[in-house]
């Protein structure tokens, strides 16, 4: 992903070392290669490359990883819809993509 960096210190991604069993699933599935298993534990080596896709958390057998759960769709219309919905106190409508 050279040449493409998004906003630093923004992505919500947490890894609990206590729960981690070092299986390496996160390292395998991450499309931005931000995990590395060292000495039997996964480490986040490039937090700012995270796009919050959630693949690591989904494939973690011990639920050691937490990713921004507000998945839906990563598009701007979805975010606008969800803001409007929050103001109106309704469930967000689909963005159409």
């Amino acid at each position: 992903m050279q040449g493409f960096r998004y906003l630093d210190d923004t992505a919500i991604l947490r890894l609990s070392e206590d729960k981690c069993i070092g299986c390496g699933n996160c390292q395998l599935v991450c499309p931005h290669r931000i995990f590395q298993v060292r000495d039997g534990k996964a480490k986040i080596v490039d937090l700012n490359a995270c796009m919050e896709c959630g693949a690591c958390a989904k494939n973690c057998p011990t639920a050691a990883i937490y990713v921004n759960p507000d998945d839906g769709c990563g598009c701007a219309s979805y975010i606008i819809n969800s803001w409007v919905a929050r103001i109106r106190g309704k469930a967000p409508s689909r963005c159409g993509c």
């Binding site: 992903m1 493409f4 960096r5 998004y6 906003l7 923004t10 992505a11 919500i12 499309p31 931005h32 490359a49 995270c50 796009m51 919050e52 921004n68 507000d70 998945d71 839906g72 769709c73 990563g74 598009c75 701007a76 219309s77 979805y78 975010i79 606008i80 963005c95 993509c97």
Partner: peptide, 24 residues
């Protein structure tokens, strides 16, 4: 351009929400 964030494979939802607060 802000709308294009949804089509890329490297923008996080938290990041898009952050830039939209300023951008909009």
């Amino acid at each position: 351009a802000m709308n294009f964030t949804g089509s890329t494979p490297f923008t996080s939802l938290s990041g898009v929400a952050k830039e939209m607060r300023n951008g909009l």
